[in-house]
Nucleic acid binder design. Sequence first.
DNA 1: CTGAAAGCGCTAACAT
DNA 2: ATGTTAGCGCTTTCAG
Lengths: 340, 340
Amino acid sequence: MRPTIADVARLAGVSKSSVSRVLSGNTSYMSEVTRRRVETAIHDLQYRPNMIARSLISNRSHTVGLLISDVSNPFYPEVIHGVEDVAMEHHYDVFLCNINYDLNRGMHFVRSLISRQVDGVMIMSSSMSDEWLTELTRYQIPTVVLDWQVRSIEGTAGSITVDFERGIRAAVDHLIALGHNHFAHVSGPLGLHTSRLRRDAFLSSLAQHGVDPAAVPVIEGDLSIDGGSRGLEQLLSFSQRPTAVFAANDLTALGIVWSARDRGLRIPEDLSVIGLDNIRLASEIHPPLTTVALPQAEIGKMAMHMLLELLQRGEPLEKMLNAQVETQLMIRRSTSPPGG
Amino acid sequence: MRPTIADVARLAGVSKSSVSRVLSGNTSYMSEVTRRRVETAIHDLQYRPNMIARSLISNRSHTVGLLISDVSNPFYPEVIHGVEDVAMEHHYDVFLCNINYDLNRGMHFVRSLISRQVDGVMIMSSSMSDEWLTELTRYQIPTVVLDWQVRSIEGTAGSITVDFERGIRAAVDHLIALGHNHFAHVSGPLGLHTSRLRRDAFLSSLAQHGVDPAAVPVIEGDLSIDGGSRGLEQLLSFSQRPTAVFAANDLTALGIVWSARDRGLRIPEDLSVIGLDNIRLASEIHPPLTTVALPQAEIGKMAMHMLLELLQRGEPLEKMLNAQVETQLMIRRSTSPPGG
DNA sequence: CTGAAAGCGCTAACAT
DNA sequence: ATGTTAGCGCTTTCAG
């Protein structure tokens, strides 16, 4: 049996309260001697406090949940890092849940987190259900959501929205400055809000430069390398081939680059490619990818900070918190004037 | 306040015990009526049992910890999946901890997991400290370790070892059959046991074919893309250039392939490259990478299953459990006869 | 078949 | 400055 606070008390010859006091650092009114005795007893027994018992009293588990679509998506690692760093700083632990693009699985995790009395939850899944939020707020669990148009919810919640506009506009400006005039977009699943945002930002920025959006082919991909490959194939079948393509994410862009290469096209001479996310690989491939960067670690940190803030305020907010992160163009080697 | 079992009991007009009975499905000796009343009360109150309170009694948190080096390492996603899948099946939740290659951080997590009373722990970090295991077994927490030479530990533990031999021998056979006779290896950090295993397997397989191991350059890398690039540069500086190189992992292999390409070498005509792991990217790049595959998902599943078994047996084992997984050569397009 | 009571490990008044 | 007591939400004997 693992030693309990009672064992420590017995060994030290004091009461449980005294032990509890040194555990919580409530040591101001204690005699040096008792403190010492307790400390040695703790050490001798290799006693470790039982968080479960603590949580039962305090109603706080010092744990937060983080729901993501899929660990294997290279967008997440840095985000997770950001979350973990801030969490660790504040002595929180993180329950990472892989939704795996499965809404049911998501709901399962949500219920499980509720039962576990997590103090808060962050949802960063491209596909999520409003139900999750409803369930979470029903039990007053503070929740932060990334990049999801939430109809303002009653309860303690916050959201982080990504300003794609700015980075994407910079990307378009860059392409225009290079002299391109035939564009294309390989999007994410257009059922996703975020895919539409990216597409619209691209098209409207183009329009600002006098390019007719209707003339810009949009191919629906699936945010994967394979989707990018397929997108490129379609692009090549058009009579009017684009000289520059904007991909909804870096994975898609990689698929485009590699398939284009395979077909004998040179990147960037024959085709300029811009991605989005700025995953690690983007700078490691050849040529390194020009991309609209998301501040991944910052997103993670911000989410956890916002959650912490939500946790502090006891009462439900009258209005959801909101924060915005900026995107930023990283110019690398996958873009050049058309023809080189 | 969230409803408790008392609220349900009150609403249903029964005792807490009765509610508890239906919660645990202990419904055999109950009247249909009471069961119904309780069920409706649970539903009306949207009651969710408090796992924390349950755990306090049962001493089991239905939670396991999974320590990994770094989420961003593409080796892990499938492993994590495997673990999660069988964990979910058995109603366990997984605490994912990113050691981040930091031994202190690892110890921190270990202590935290102990305080949280996790039922078991899996350690899958390339660098780990024996201390972790000592600490874990001190508190009788069943632990499964991947690919780490554990001096047999007293307590409830298991290990999964990877048989690199077989897959690597197949890789060497393949290279020899293709007609290669100048080899090189870009290893992982040779401080790591697993790096030495891989290197030794390569060298000894080569020896079996009459190749003098002393004549085979081994360049110490760091299991990253960058390390691969640097490895290739060194390789090119040798008077006798190898025609085939075996990399300690796929990331290293990618670095080699891409850098070689950059320097105008053709893959596989001018250089055959074999990786190890079989990460997803390996089959998505061009040319797809020949690699010694680790059964990632299987490793995850096996680890969780072994942990479950450890959990079943109450008493400490007299001997550690052990299981082995096989590696397998995946022949793709990054290898060919020298010169094409 | 159902309820009352004790107790899991800990903290937080309340005494002393 | 320290000990005593009650109780967090739940399960589990033990009575009835």
